Every structure is written in structure tokens, then in C-alpha cells.
Amino acid sequence: MAVLKSWRRIVGIVGTVAGALLAYGILTNFSSIHQTASFLSKFTIKELFVLQSTFRLRQPDPLSSNMIVLRMRADPGAIREVPNPNGAIVSTVPAGTTLRPLSEKRAWYLVEPREDADGPSFRKGYVSVSDVEWAANCVPAEMIDLGPGDLFRDCAAAPEMIVVPAGSFMMGSPASEEYRLPDEGPQRKVEITTPFAAGVYEVTFEQWDACQRTGGCGPKEPHDLGLGRGNYPVMNIDWPQARKYVRWLSAITGKRYRLLSEAEWEYAARAGTTAPRPGSGSDSSYCEHLNGLDLTALKLVPDVVDAVGSTIPCSDGYPAGAVVGSFSPNAFGLYDMIGNVSEWTQDC
């Protein structure tokens, strides 16, 4: 769950959290975490335990992702009857053969032929992790003319993108705005002179795990705080890690991905509105558009108002993080631009 303070600052209620909104070419964005140790210190151990106990524990098997493929690196590669280097060899396949991993056991994968891949047939068996490698499932799509509002995906391993139109807006917030932070002014007019593409959803754990499996995002695995991985937004990553992810996307697609600038992010988040929050302005409409610090959290942790000053006067149904795309998009077709988890930008 996130604390709704303004368009520019969403602070995670359960610790360091991160999300990711991506953009592409001169067109980009990605998201991440804010450290909240001082915020957490305002809660009792019992209250934090109550929050933790509500977290979903769903842990999808990362081997099931269609964003990456397992292929034989050894030539020829041995597939054995049992996960043992002395086990009987049931098949051998040349380097480059794609495999369908079924499970992982210590230093071995149980594999079988991929149904959708051309290659030699072989019997199901075990292959040593030292004989195989993970690769991005990325055959770049043909480029076509795109206009504002058009959706596209460069390849299976890349995020779904949408073209954001050019335009102008008043960046920052007026001094009279409720919950305004000191660094949100002075207001100034900003021109976005060229359309750009941004990720439709926050970057998910599944997308991040694909980058990490293939060596693009480093060895450090971000913790999900018990929420679950899969289509939950990635969290607990820092700015250098966010940049590694967009560099990985650039490498596998041959296109230019980068983090959005702060101005591009706020323009995309506002999507033409000057209101401090998304929705129609009614209390109930806030929770249709964002996962924030609301009455759901208030029931779990009654002292939360004393810790952060306010809550959203509605219930979004999520005591903590939500699967990406669980709420209504903004006018540009972007989800979770406010709430859920925070975003990293190229500058600050």
C-alpha cells in the first residue's frame, strides 16, 4: 500500500518498495523504491506483524515464464536419466537446442523438448546447470508507424508500451495544494515536444526475474516482502539496478530504452489533468484509480493516521501491494502511475 501525498511522491507503507514504469527510445521510464525506515519506526511490532500477515504468499515458478528460454550451451549436451553426473545419458543434443524446463533441483534442471521449437527430439531427463544458459525470448518485432495511444511490444521479453502524445503542462503544484511537499515548486510550464512511449504497467517481478536470469540485472535478488512475485510490481531495487534493467532491454531488442525524466514522468502521470489526485474528485473515485493508504489499511493498523497524517477516504481492497493493472488507467492509458509502488526517473 502506498501513501498518497501528491503526484510526485508515493511512499511505501511496508518498507523499501519499488515499481517500474518504462519508456522507450527518447521515449522512456522505469520505477523503484523509497527508503522508509523512519516511517516504519512509528509502528509497533504488533502492528507490523498484522500488516505482514495480510501479504499474499503466491510464488509463481520462474521457470514458467515465456520471457526467457533455456538452451543447451555444451556441445553436445548430455541429458541424463537422474540428476547425477554419473547417471545414464538418455539423449545428447547440440549447443543452441532450446529446452523446456520443468523443475529445478540443486544444480540440475528437469527438461523436455519444447513443443514450439524446431530442433532434435530427445527424451525427458536432467541437464546440468553448467551445460545450459538462459536467454531472452526476444525476436524483435517489425517496426510500424505508431501514433499517440497505439500499443506495441518489441518482443516477448519486453514490456507492453503505449505512445504518449506531445503536449505541455504546469509542472509542480501550487502552494495552496493539500499535502504539497516543499520540493514541488515553484510551478513552471514544461513543453513535451515529441511523443514518447512508456510502459503500460509497472515493471513486474516476472520481467525483472527474466533480466536477472539472463545476467542483465546482477546477482542481487530483490525481496518481495512476502507479497509474491509474478505480476506484482518489482520492489526493493535501487537506481543503478533500474538503469541495468533498461540497458538490458536495449541490448536484447536493439532499441533504445531509458528511464523517463522527472518532467516526462509527471506529464505522463497527470495525463492532462491539473487535479492533485486521479479520478472525478469524489472520495470513492480515488480508490478506483490507485492503490493507496486507505481505509483498508486503517482497519489493520488504527494508528496509521498518527504516523503519516492522513489516509484516503475510501477502500481499495488491498492492504499492501496489488498486481499491476488492478486499477483503472489514466487518460493516457497508463496504470498505477500513482499508488502501489514508487517510480525511479532519470533525473530528480
Rank of each mutant, 00 (worst) to 15 (best):
N231C: 00
W208K: 03
P219Q: 09
R270M: 02
F196W: 13
Y232D: 01
P233W: 01
K244A: 13
G254M: 02
G281K: 08
L227M: 04
R277H: 10
Y245M: 13
G254W: 00
T273R: 02
A320S: 15
G228E: 07
M235A: 08
W248Y: 12
G216T: 04
L290I: 14
I252A: 06
G226P: 02
D306N: 15
T311L: 13
R258C: 09
C287N: 09
S285L: 06
R256C: 07
L293V: 04
Y318S: 01
H289Y: 14
V305W: 09
L300T: 03
D316W: 07
T204N: 08
K255I: 02
Y318A: 04
K220N: 15
G317K: 11
S250A: 05
S250I: 10
P240V: 06
R277G: 00
P276H: 10
W208T: 11
N236W: 03
D209R: 12
V301E: 01
L290F: 10
G272F: 02
D224W: 09
A297P: 00
P276K: 11
W265T: 02
A197L: 15
H223M: 03
V301F: 07
D238P: 00
T274S: 14
S282K: 13
I192E: 00
Q207K: 05
E202T: 13
A307Q: 10
Y257M: 03
E266V: 06
I237F: 02
R277D: 05
L290R: 11
W248Q: 05
M235C: 07
L249T: 06
S250M: 07
S285G: 01
N291L: 07
Y286V: 06
S250Q: 07
G321P: 08
G199M: 08
R270T: 04
R188V: 09
S285C: 00
P219S: 12
G317T: 08
W208C: 12
K220Y: 03
E266L: 01
G272T: 05
E288P: 10
D294G: 04
A320D: 12
E184N: 01
K189Q: 15
E288A: 07
V305R: 12
G309P: 15
P186D: 00
I237Q: 02
P313K: 06
T194M: 15
V308I: 15
T311S: 07
P195Y: 01
R277T: 11
R258N: 11
F205R: 09
G230K: 00
C314Q: 12
G279I: 09
A251D: 10
E262S: 13
A210L: 14
V190P: 00
A271N: 12
K255D: 13
L298I: 07
W239L: 12
R270G: 08
P319C: 03
E264N: 13
E262L: 15
I252G: 08
I252P: 05
V246P: 07
A197D: 14
W265Q: 07
C217S: 11
